[in-house]
């Protein structure tokens, strides 16, 4: 699956999309693939404030558990209830229906700490060495 061009990425394989003052985040196709079948997603409470790269959610497969880190600082505004009920959405559509939560970003300058799609492609290639 191609990494969408309009998103920014973290080294921990989260993505973020900015639309006006709302940001949406999720995990990348690479991440969902590495995790295998996701069976549970633990999302933060609405209204929670967090800093960039803070551990903010948890995804579980049958045999593993992984932290999800915040791509930017902000405050949680909306949770994707669909993924708590059907965690397989994260596997099937990581960049679209499988988003995790929306938040109000605090400082868009933090985007400079993230990778563009091109940079992320190169980063993934380097992981495969």
């Amino acid at each position: 699956m191609e990494n969408p061009r309009e998103l920014r990425y973290t080294k921990e394989h989260e993505w973020v999309k900015i639309e006006g003052d709302t940001a949406t985040m999720g995990i990348s196709d690479y991440a969902q693939h590495a995790l295998t079948d996701i069976v549970y997603v633990e999302l933060p409470k609405e209204g929670r404030e967090f800093k960039q790269f803070e551990s903010i959610a948890v995804v579980e497969s049958v045999k593993s558990v992984s932290d999800v880190y915040a791509p930017l600082s902000g405050k949680v505004t909306e949770l994707n209830k669909a993924v708590t009920e059907k965690p397989e959405l994260v596997n099937k559509e990581p960049f679209t229906a499988g988003w995790l939560f929306r938040f109000k970003a605090k400082d868009l300058n933090e985007l400079n700490n993230l990778m563009t799609a091109e940079q992320y492609d190169a980063y993934l290639a380097s992981l495969k060495h």
Partner: peptide, 13 residues
């Protein structure tokens, strides 16, 4: 089932 709660996977958490 739901083993990701347990110590052998989640360790200190």
């Amino acid at each position: 089932t739901l083993q990701a709660r347990e110590q052998h996977i989640r360790r200190e958490r």
